[in-house]
Design a protein around this nucleic acid. Structure first.
Length: 473
DNA sequence: AAAAAAG
């Protein structure tokens, strides 16, 4: 029983796997596929990079193909939810590959891109729909989609989807699904409390746990460096410069704890001549797609990311993961370092631990049952660090085009720190709204709603308490 | 406490 052909999958699926060069199922695939072909609910826990996507995609496609249905408009038979747009796109692409020789259509919807094209693509109905929660609910409210005919519901990165920030939209989606359906939850980590919460969405699931929970990806050599916050940037810059030059580093993924931190690291790297791109939730979707694309293609060997890229993202050739700042949720560490050593490759993870981050390291070591090997700061580090160039001042470039912070109404952004005033628009550059060069049309006094709207909002709208809410510290 | 996801 060690070939896909032994698992009872339909011939067109086996052919698609053959075309990709896959013949041996991974342990999670071997265990999950038979149960899913039977139509059971499933809770799948396996370390990252072990083929979870195929584990739910293959048997689901088999079941859909074995029971062909006339296509119903604005609906889908299988719904896959993902916590990030990039992961949704990746899952959809994988599923299209597996469905290549089947008469099944795969659609993908997520925010940050125009909604019209997505809505039109849903009109004839599809078999598989991969989505992020916000845009999904948006399209349902627009009546561009109904979940009435969903037969299979998949929650990828299930523990994150049931976390505080996602649970409300998730519940709304679950309420719109038929009671009778097959539900599949997958993740590399599954904290107990979250698993309890999950019971309301899934019924009597088969639990497939291939490795002990929260096992870090095999073949990742895990190191820690103890240093001060002020030394982190220099160590990162020097490590990347040396490693990229010697060829020891093929691609490196650097994780920061905040969006702002990611941008700051990229600025420092750029000043020292290390090509790097940032990806985080304040970037426009086109910037996000471009950054990940350049990293995938090898045009940009270093990607600096928030935890937006911690889960699921599959880029081959990531030889190193740097934790520039330690994750404060230990599970997140497992996902982060799982971006390297994928599909049989090896990888290295290096965690930068400042004194105040030591408790996080301890939690991580307790969760993973792995003790990280400590590396000393390299010889002559201080001298080399002193020779590094200072970063250019915060430019009007990239970040000026960042999307606004996605905080809620009552909160407000902190004051802009000293020396980070938004720079004036460069000489000769037009107002962004007037790139066509036309003159602004004069607004007739008393006309135009914006004035009124602004007044109303201040009077009692969602921003009414702006500034009065005590900020959490 | 931060990040993500709808504009």
């Amino acid at each position: 029983m060690s070939y896909f052909s032994d698992l009872g999958l339909a011939e067109p699926i086996l052919r698609a796997l053959g075309a990709k060069g896959y013949s041996d199922p991974t342990p999670i695939q071997r265990q999950a596929i038979p149960a899913l072909l039977e139509g059971r609910d499933l809770l799948g826990i396996a370390q990252t990079g072990t083929g979870k996507t195929a584990a739910f995609a293959l048997p689901s496609l088999h079941r859909l193909a074995a029971d062909p249905q006339p296509r119903k408009g604005a609906s889908c038979r299988m719904l896959v939810l993902s916590p990030t747009r990039e992961l949704a796109a990746q899952i959809a692409e994988n599923m299209r590959g597996y469905a290549k020789y089947l008469n099944l259509s795969v659609q993908c919807i997520f925010g940050g891109v125009p909604v019209g094209k997505q809505a039109r693509a849903l009109v004839p109905g599809c078999d598989v729909l991969v989505a992020t929660p916000g845009r999904l609910l948006d399209l349902i409210e627009q009546r561009a989609l109904t979940l009435r005919h969903v037969e299979i519901f998949v929650l990828d990165e299930a523990d994150q989807m049931m976390d505080l920030g996602f649970i409300v939209p998730l519940k709304r989606v679950a309420n719109l699904l038929p009671k009778e359906r097959q539900s599949l939850f997958f993740s590399a980590t599954m904290p107990k409390a979250i698993a309890e919460l999950g019971k309301q969405f899934i019924h009597n699931p088969v639990r497939v746990e291939v490795t002990p929970q929260a096992t870090t990806a095999e073949r990742v050599e895990q190191f820690a460096v103890h240093l001060n916050q002020a030394e982190k940037q220099a160590l990162l810059t020097l490590s990347l410069r040396k490693g990229l030059q010697s060829g020891e580093i093929e691609r490196a993924l650097v994780f920061t704890r905040t969006k702002h931190g990611a941008d700051r690291v990229v600025r420092h790297l750029a000043a020292a001549g290390v090509t790097a791109a940032a990806i985080h939730g304040n970037k426009s979707q086109s910037q996000r797609t471009a950054a990940l694309g350049a990293f995938r293609k090898g045009d940009c060997p270093v990607l600096v990311a928030t935890d937006i890229a911690a889960r699921g993202i599959d880029v081959s050739g990531v030889s190193h993961v740097f934790n520039f700042e330690m994750p404060n949720v230990p599970e997140q560490y497992v996902h982060r370092i799982g971006r390297t050593a994928r599909a049989g490759a090896t990888g290295v993870s290096i965690s930068f631990v400042a004194p105040d981050e030591k408790p996080y390291l301890r939690d991580i070591e307790r969760l993973t049952q792995v003790k990280l090997a400590c590396l000393p700061l390299p010889d002559g580090f201080l001298q080399e660090a002193a020779r590094l160039p200072a970063p250019t001042r915060k430019p009007g470039g990239d970040e000026a085009h960042d999307r606004r912070d996605n905080r809620r109404g009552g909160e407000r952004r902190g004051p802009r720190p000293e020396g980070e005033r938004r720079p004036a628009r460069p000489e000769g550059e037009r107002h962004p709204a007037r790139q066509d060069g036309k003159q602004r049309t004069p607004r007739v006094e008393g006309e135009g709603q914006p004035q009124q709207r602004r007044f109303k909002r201040r009077a009692g709208g969602p921003g009414a308490f702006r500034g009065k809410v005590k900020r959490a510290s």
